[in-house]
Design a protein around this nucleic acid. Structure first.
Lengths: 345, 345
DNA sequence: CTGAAAGCGCTAACAT
DNA sequence: ATGTTAGCGCTTTCAG
């Protein structure tokens, strides 16, 4: 590896002068500058980012922590979109992006303690994450791409308005005549899942429909789980005529499960997804879903972190709530005529 | 930030002893060890990875270079699968993963020159990438997840057997009675695209079908392009009855384009994709496609790199060719009866 | 405009 | 078993 010292020797100057040329700092006589630059080119010298970071006390790297199993995350297309947003903004700011898969209970905060990164972006942190305590005490600059509690807290975050999103879905279904609406909410240790349930209850109440506790199911986001839960609900004595799912993969699985039980989508059962990942539009039938903009979420998360890192005083916590939007496609339709005849039984 | 010096002072030992405890090297008396460990815990000390890397001369980080626009890459689901494979293996080896978006002509090799990473994994490098020269001279340990030339060269790589993959597709279509088969190959600056064309020609020859040069189209992998090219081919005086596409997104777009021109899939036109990303199975109709295992590709790439980095002598170049497999779903069917009646006109 | 020296936080010889 | 001394490659005072 070519070092600054070799360049200095070869150019007949001190290392400091080379440093000045490289960093374009202070004035160096044009002649010297040119000579140094020439040697740099000849030798293919590149300053060691390690040494530089060490002395400057920052790594110019941001860690994106994915605190779930890799398989799980990468199969959630939505995260890919968030990642794209993050990657673009970071790249624009010449910040490097370190992906960190935090399996199990990895104390990923060490990434910062070790100064491997200057800040952290946390994707999908569950409420019971053991790192949360330290993070909330402001140990490291970090922003979350999800809320981590429903109460006020000093964290910086971007998140979608899940409650309103689900409410939009319920409104849509009710307008189609549905009154038995199931909810495959997602894993219970995510705030966003609570919010989905909250929106669901709020919307039903608004329409004067009692909340059917037995139609609210919790489990991981995955098509397999969606399939299983949908089958289960279809076996209910009074099965729902519509299903709202925590994410699109779950919805796709649910469609499959519904069909396996001999029902059609959307003629017999309507299905709504969440996220509007690329898959949704291409599905069979194209999926009605609640859109949240992952790319934008990622961009904002990165912007927030950059702002946070630049403040010496970690300022007042900021958070951004992103709107959701119902995208109506073909997995939802009018409630079947006779679906509510058995109400009185 | 807590440094080794503070720990040493507080524990009343030298920094070297602390170092020994942290690295579990040499023998330290149990009493001392325990005292030091206690202080470390109290102070929440974590060794600076920066300083450590600097002195050890390696960063324990691998760079994954994505030398195309972020949007393009992230919309190619296949890369997400490769990334998952890479991430898992790296994580198992306690190697960090740096994502680098190399827009335009970024000299990404500097990541290594600056010792920011110990090695590079390169995704989808076009033949005209200006960094290739340096890379092939062995400037940095690197492995490619694609071939970069069709000839022998000293690079390490994993890649799928594209030629055979497309050949499998042609065989399938011919067995269904198709003789006019179009190819939406992909961007012309990718070796894998040349190989697709090669397999296509080889297979047609095998079946005694002349190669229809005007049915081979080159352009980026994207559903939009797939749509446009498919429409174009449908306007051909003797349109193909089957389309083989360079990847699944392109195939999905092609299905759309075919439909827009008033033809049905697969009754009038059969469409085959490539990759078998998760989307393929959920599409309408479910897509017949040539499967390549991205996850495996990623894992192997990472394994190869780890092997390469551990060899002082950069050994003999290794490469791995992955099998492809035709997955028949519902986007392909028998050639329409009268499709070849106009052969003699 | 340029250089000498100190030191970022750590590890690795080489003592003791 | 433990400490001292040099650096790793760079930037930063502070002089010249």
């Amino acid at each position: 590896m070519v070092t600054i010292r070799e360049v200095a020797e070869r150019a007949g100057v001190s290392i400091k002068t080379v440093s000045r040329v490289v960093n374009n700092t202070a004035e160096v006589s044009p002649a010297t500058r040119q000579r140094v630059q020439q040697v740099i080119a000849e030798l293919g010298y590149q300053p060691s980012s390690l040494a530089r970071s060490l002395v400057r006390g920052k790594s110019d790297t941001v860690g994106v922590v994915i605190p779930l199993s890799a398989h799980f995350i990468f199969s959630r297309l939505f995260f890919t979109e968030v990642l794209r947003g993050i990657a673009e903004v970071l790249s624009d700011h010449r910040l490097d992006l370190l992906i960190y898969l935090a399996q199990d209970e990895t104390p990923y905060i060490q990434l910062y303690r070790q100064r491997r990164v200057d800040g952290l972006i946390l994707m999908s942190v569950p409420v019971d994450d053991p790192n949360l305590a330290g993070l909330l005490e402001g140990e490291a600059p970090c922003v979350f791409t999800c809320r981590i509690t429903e109460h006020e807290n000093p964290s910086w975050w971007v998140d979608a308005d899940f409650a309103t999103g689900v409410e939009q879905a319920v409104d849509h279904l009710v307008s189609l005549g549905h009154t038995r609406i199931g909810l495959l909410a997602g894993p219970p240790n995510l705030v966003s899942v609570h919010l989905r349930v909250k929106g669901y209850c709020r919307a039903l109440a608004k329409h004067g429909i009692p909340v059917p506790e037995d139609l609210i199911l919790y489990d991981d986001f995955s098509s397999e789980v969606g399939r299983t839960l949908a089958r289960k609900l279809m076996e209910h004595p009074r099965p729902p005529t519509a299903l709202i799912c925590g994410d699109d993969m779950m919805a796709l699985g649910a469609i499959q499960g519904v069909r396996e039980m001999g029902r059609r989508v959307p003629e017999d059962v309507s299905v709504v997804g969440f996220d509007d990942v690329i898959l949704a539009a291409y599905a069979t039938p194209p999926l009605t879903t609640i859109r949240q903009d992952g790319y934008e979420k990622g961009r904002i998360a990165a912007d927030l972190l950059i702002e946070l890192m630049s403040e010496a005083s970690h300022g007042v916590p900021r958070h951004v709530v992103l709107d959701t939007r119902l995208v109506v496609r073909h997995s939802t339709g009018p409630a079947p005529r006779d679906s509510n005849l058995d109400v009185g039984r």
